[in-house]
């Protein structure tokens, strides 16, 4: 009885989470623009989507910004984490408070505050917001996630390892690259992946800092503002399939790794 209730509850939540997406997908194949009646099956909206210059160029922008910003944030954040983990207590607390600001602050405030900064200084230099400001803004909200992923790795690491490497003949730099870096690498990678997905997905901060440069979320927003267009449904379907594929692959790899480690141990 209790088991049935739990299953029913789980099913209801799943229905709530997936029904809207499912409906979007179904109506992406609709011949008319109706959002409630299926009148026939077609791939037209997908064809139109792939001929839509604006969508393709904004997809390209999104990917470039996400790659550059997440790489930049990873390098900046990993280096910062190395320094922060060696700090004394008080400066460490202060720096971590500052690092938490972009995470705790509402996104709109982050976006607006950066916009004020850019507008204020760039107007004086006759520059306009665009690609560069977009990347700066993305790095700014990405870095904290890299730092928060890397710092715990230092806490788990045996502090003697670094000294042992030096005793065994490494100089400081090579001891860092041979001993410390491999230890913190998992944190760096998960920080990079988090940054990358946040950058791909970001709308609010980009909206305020992109000037006339369009990223995919900004284009989607302007599409939803205008008229109903099943092209958005087609786009959603593709994005949904990509997300499912990535998550499934990720899950499979994780399971395989777990099993491997289980065998080794």
């Amino acid at each position: 009885m209790k088991k049935c209730l739990s299953k029913l509850y789980l099913a209801l939540v799943m229905l709530f989470l997936y029904a809207p997406i499912f409906v979007l997908i179904v109506f992406s194949f609709n011949t008319t623009k109706s959002r409630s009646v299926m009148s026939g099956f077609t791939f037209d909206w997908y064809v139109k989507l792939f001929h839509n210059e604006l969508i393709l160029s904004s997809l390209w922008n999104t990917i470039i910004v996400a790659v550059i910003a997440s790489l930049g944030a990873t390098i900046l954040g990993a280096a910062a984490a190395v320094g922060i983990s060696g700090m004394k207590r008080l400066p460490k607390t202060i720096v971590m408070q500052g690092t938490n600001i972009p995470i705790m602050n509402p996104e709109i405030v982050t976006g607006v505050s950066l916009m004020l900064l850019f507008v204020f200084f760039m107007a004086r230099m006759n520059l306009e917001m665009g690609f560069v400001t977009l990347i700066i803004a993305h790095i700014t909200f990405d870095v904290p996630y890299v730092i928060l992923n890397v710092i715990p790795r230092f806490r788990q690491m045996d502090p003697n390892l670094y000294e042992a490497a030096q005793d065994l003949g490494c100089n400081g730099v090579s001891a860092f690259f041979k001993v410390v870096l491999p230890e913190i690498m998992p944190g760096i990678i998960s920080g990079f992946l988090m940054s990358f997905t946040f950058s791909l997905d970001d709308f609010v901060v980009s909206y305020f800092t992109s000037g006339t440069t369009q990223t995919l979320p900004i284009t989607i927003y302007s599409m939803t503002r205008r008229k109903v267009s099943p092209e958005i449904n087609a786009l959603s379907t593709i994005i949904f399939l990509v997300v499912v594929a990535v998550l499934v692959i990720n899950n499979v790899i994780e399971r395989r790794n777990l099993r491997k480690r289980g065998v080794v141990r």
């Binding site: 029904a19 809207p20 409906v23 709308f203 979320p217 927003y221 109903v228 958005i232 994005i239 997300v243």
Partner: peptide
């Protein structure tokens, strides 16, 4: 359960708009 979160939230909100 978490999968829908990975879709852009504009699209998720748009889905409800049409519903």
């Amino acid at each position: 359960v978490m999968l829908p979160m990975w879709m852009n939230f504009l699209l998720r909100t748009y889905a409800w708009m049409t519903l």
